[in-house]
Design a protein around this nucleic acid. Structure first.
Lengths: 113, 113
DNA sequence: TCAATACTTGGCAATTTCGCCAAGTAAAGC
DNA sequence: GCTTTACTTGGCGAAATTGCCAAGTATTGA
């Protein structure tokens, strides 16, 4: 009972840390390997402080890990399975209420469970 | 370029619709099949209007579909692959900065890509 | 030791989200 | 038609999020 809620709260903390266009852009870039903050700043196109705060949020949620080398700080994804999820998210058509109710156990999702 | 941003914005809209403990509780319950709003209200333990608004957000994001039968409205998940993602989310340890940097291509994720 | 670079942190205003209450709608039963 | 049930919608204050600027920290190089 209370455990279900706890699970939901833990999950929500992680998912919230992902629920922002700039942070998704960052996650996508990190899929190909680590990047320093200034690279990500260029990608996102926001103030360096803004990007840094986004990265802190993602790191505290457990999505990223960081490592300082010289003057730079490099961030990496901690869970590559994110990309599977993005495919799943992308498969949700923007048009509402598509007519595909009868095979509701598989839906339109391109991924196997 | 601009397409990358568009993709991120579309994804963020869906993920935001998921980034709340009550909505995750709802998603979890719907994994086992459709539920009417009053069932979900009981599960979430909030005002009926609050639950209804959560459901509207999730439906507009493409996560759910609804069907009215008699007095009740039934909601269903549109994408069962969500559950794979939750396993992934759950695998992100709450303790920060675990010492597991060398195999960064697979990480601690229990799912295959 | 002094300056430059690459960040992080504090603070704050603007925007968004959240959850309740009250009011509205739609189907069912009498 | 009237009532009940099962929602949905409007509205509003409270709380959280977002993004910039300014200031602080840490490493490098001269």
């Amino acid at each position: 009972m209370t455990t279900l809620l706890n699970t939901a709260q833990r999950r929500a903390a992680v998912i919230k840390a992902l629920a922002h266009p700039s942070r998704l852009l960052i996650a996508d870039a990190l899929q190909h390997g680590e990047r320093c903050v200034c690279d990500l700043r260029e990608l996102v196109g926001a103030d360096l402080s803004t990007v840094s705060k986004h990265l802190t949020v993602m790191r505290q949620a457990g999505l990223l890990e960081m490592e300082k080398r010289g003057l730079n700080v490099y961030y990496r994804l901690r869970c590559p399975c994110l990309m599977s999820f993005f495919e799943c998210v992308d498969s949700l058509a923007p048009k509402r209420e598509k007519r595909e109710r009868r095979n509701s156990s598989t839906g339109s999702c391109k991924l196997r469970i």
